[in-house]
Amino acid sequence: MSIDIDTARKVAHLARIRVQEDDLPALARELSGILGFMEQLNEVDVTGIEPMVSVTPMRLARRADVVTDGNIQEQVLKNAPDAREGFFAVPKVVE
């Protein structure tokens, strides 16, 4: 599978990454290269082999159902480009 310029443009838009039109051909080439490598890996027969998620046997860490966090409104909003009355303020998005 290869990625053409239109697909590269679409993926960039979906991820909300601004890419200059001139940069798209190179980006499409790089993405195609990555997918090409994946395809090569896909040639290996892994029938019946369980995917490995970790090199050491580990159990998903769990948390008890208690409130241990929050009430840090000021810190949460600190990096926001715009915040008003405790809310993040963003350009109008309405359905």
Binding site: D82, E85, G86, F87, F88, A89, V90, K92, V94
Partner: peptide
């Protein structure tokens, strides 16, 4: 809450 902005919680 505002004519040009949306407020997010």
């Amino acid at each position: 809450m505002d004519p040009t902005m949306s407020f997010v919680d």
